[in-house]
Design a protein around this nucleic acid. Structure first.
Lengths: 151, 151
DNA sequence: TCAAATTCGTTTCAGTTGCAACAAATTTCT
DNA sequence: AGAAATTTGTTGCAACTGAAACGAATTTGA
């Protein structure tokens, strides 16, 4: 005779729920970015960072948007070949690569951001939570997870 | 002169937040499952489903835990080779494959579930939300996303 | 000063992924 | 009944992924 199973419900298991929701959101967003602008989610994150932060090098961006540095490197190649950004070697430390949006890149960000915001609003509408609440709850959890050791 | 950028903050962009949190949780859980039991997250989901639902075939499991059917198929090969489940062809529809936990499989689930629950509790502690609240909010969003068209 | 250690971005490589093709089995439709 | 369409699970394949190796550049420290 085998021992009794302890109770468990995958459908309400929080890590599973996050995984399912994240995958769904990601798929929808990826389709949006791809269909209308021909870029990937990684490329989108990089464009946004160049537009809205002072992260200028692969290293800075890598830490900021939590992408593998290989992934950043490859995405940057794409973006450069499409004329959305330029690469320039730093004058004082020639290991560093300075990235800069081109006008076309900035233009694309201008068009993309409203769509991205609209998408987020639609998600928030599906929840009873206020969007600002949701954002701050998630920001809090993000911070907790990246700091502390879990288990 | 380029047009002004509309406001945007990636760090508080909900789909991005979900992606980061999900990746972090997933990495932690994957390490837990791998180190202590030598199984993957996909294998874990399959074990749990066999233990707690009446999903018995690859098709049922595929829909229930939202895994690609190829992924289920490959994970099942692994689980069978480790003696955690058995495959048996359905008597009346020989396309169907009935899966069944072995005693060893059930035993592993018994040991894993408390760890998984503990992990979830630690996550919930990091939020001000009650865990039941969190679960039901997420369940609601999951449902909304899988139903309606988004954008 | 200069050898060792570190940092940066790219590339290589082996493992994973998911889509599509596939064979086997069943169901549908006439 | 039986040809066509559908369903099921597996496999082939090409794209993607991330860890590690790598060369170039810089920093450290003896």
């Amino acid at each position: 005779m085998t021992q009794d199973l302890p109770g468990f419900d995958l459908e309400h298991y929080v890590p599973y729920q996050f995984s399912v929701i994240s995958a769904q959101l990601s798929a929808n967003l990826a389709a949006l970015y791809r269909d209308r602008f021909g870029i990937s989610v990684a490329e989108w994150r990089i464009l946004v960072n160049l537009a809205y932060s002072d992260s200028r090098t692969v290293r800075d961006i890598q830490q900021r948007v939590r992408l593998d540095k290989a992934k950043v490197s490859r995405a940057v190649v794409q973006l450069e070949s499409r004329g959305l950004l330029t690469k320039e070697i730093d004058g004082t430390d020639r290991r560093l690569l300075h990235l800069e949006l081109t006008d076309a890149g900035r233009q694309m960000v201008c068009e993309l951001v409203p769509l991205a915001n609209k998408f987020q609003d639609q998600v928030a509408q599906k929840l009873s939570l206020d969007i600002a609440d949701l954002q701050s709850q998630l920001a809090h959890l993000m911070k907790e997870l990246s700091d502390g050791e879990t288990l």
